[in-house]
């Protein structure tokens, strides 16, 4: 493993994209920043602009309204980018799968690298998912 890959893994900047979630997953993501989980010790941090992102955390079913936005945000992200689907919604559609405005699931729209199911998933589950993803690469 070269130093370039190592520094990529050690410094993941996370951009959070809500594609029509019920806001519960988003709150669980914010839990990761709290002293209890503290993802900054792995070098991860939340960034405000998608141009700085290395990881795209997508929550929520992709609705018909957010579909073009998700595509656009994905195109605006500098590659290489890792896409992680957080929660049952972007993985399968969850409880909204039969909704009239359901345009997902996420992997039909953009390539997804990791699925973290749960409604909402625990912060531990998200950390475990990211760790598995990094070990695979």
């Amino acid at each position: 493993m070269g130093f370039k890959e190592k520094s990529f893994k050690k410094s993941l900047w996370v951009f959070h994209l809500s594609a029509g979630s019920c806001n519960n997953c988003d709150i669980e993501i914010l839990d990761l920043l709290t002293p209890r989980y503290d993802i900054e010790r792995f070098g991860m941090k939340l960034v405000g602009s998608v141009r700085h992102a290395d990881v795209l955390l997508v929550t929520g079913i992709v609705t018909k309204k957010t579909l073009p936005r998700v595509l656009e945000v994905y195109e605006q992200a500098p590659k290489p980018i890792v896409v992680v689907a957080i929660g049952a919604c972007p993985c399968t559609g969850g409880i909204f799968a039969s909704g009239y405005n359901f345009a997902g699931p996420l992997d039909k729209v953009i390539p997804v690298d990791a699925y973290i199911p749960g409604c909402p998933p625990k912060p531990e589950a998200m950390l475990a998912g990211i760790v598995k993803l990094l070990n695979k690469k």
Partner: peptide, 26 residues
């Protein structure tokens, strides 16, 4: 991080950030 009762990043973190950004697409 210590002020907020967290652990904080490792010593080489600025270097990792810098090298990673150099390797990313502009």
């Amino acid at each position: 991080a210590r002020v907020q009762f967290r652990q904080g990043p490792p010593l080489l973190q600025p270097l990792y950030d810098f090298v990673k950004l150099l390797a990313k697409e502009t």
